[in-house]
Amino acid sequence: MAFALEITDLKKTYPGGVEALKGISFSVNEGDFYALLGPNGAGKSSTIGIIGSLVTKSSGKVKIFDTDIDGNVEQAKMMLGVVSQEINFSQFEKVMDIVVTQAGFYGIPKSEALPKVESILKRLGLWDKKDVQARTLSGGYKRRLMIAKALVHEPKLLILDEPTAGVDIELRREMWSFLKEINENGTTIILTTHYLEEAEQLCRNIGIIDDGKIVTNTGMKDLLGSLNVQGFVFDLESPLSEAPSIEGFPLKLEDPLTLIAAVNKDRSINSLFELLSDRGIKVKSMRNEANRLEELFIEMVKK
């Protein structure tokens, strides 16, 4: 089976000298719903920028449905839709014009674009805003407009860069169901996020990227299986210089007075307390924090 996306040893160093990508390789199957998860600054947007010809790569290969972007770039681009992380339409134009113009840039004449645009705008709840200037839209609607623009040429591969960042919960769920639907209709989707929950809700496969490197590339189920853990944050009474190593409890020192632990759900937190006090470490207070877990999880898989 063909890969929708195949990336080989991709490197990017920005003009200022920042090494954003240090040689990443991964591939996404046709029809997949794939999550690219990683903390801020990991290199997600750089990767997507390169795939979409918005950023120049330093080296490496990118293939979209077996078409090299250094080869037949026109064909590669026809199969690709990208929703960038930042708003990238002209604020002074009308919603309808923006989408019809984008279709035109893909070589679709206006008469052919109009019915397509109508159905996409309707599906995204933008139809009654079609004649308003884009700058008057709320954040959530701007995001939907970005999606409409990326879909107008019916790409086989849709990549969304943090599409739900800063979007309220209701709209987020709406977007999720929309994306699920177009994936079921055959569009391969890649989504970047730093919410584990979002990846979990939507995606079958997941790549985790950190500091310009892919740290894991696996099925969502496998990942969640290994993720049968909870995150805890301990505030300590006296500072530590390094995290203690305790068999079965991965620990990370965030600062000298804050220790983060990943605790398997079928293990007792009490035994961790005992093991800590055996080592003379006194805990002042404790919090359960899911999003810290994500970072720790990345640390764990890196090893």
């Binding site: 979409g52 960038s84 708003i87 990238n88 840039f105």
Partner: peptide, 18 residues
């Protein structure tokens, strides 16, 4: 310049337009 400034240059760069 305003296409660059508003980032809508991306609409052109992402498209197959040479």
């Amino acid at each position: 310049y305003s296409v660059k400034f508003q980032k809508s240059i991306e609409e052109l760069l992402i498209s197959p337009m040479p």
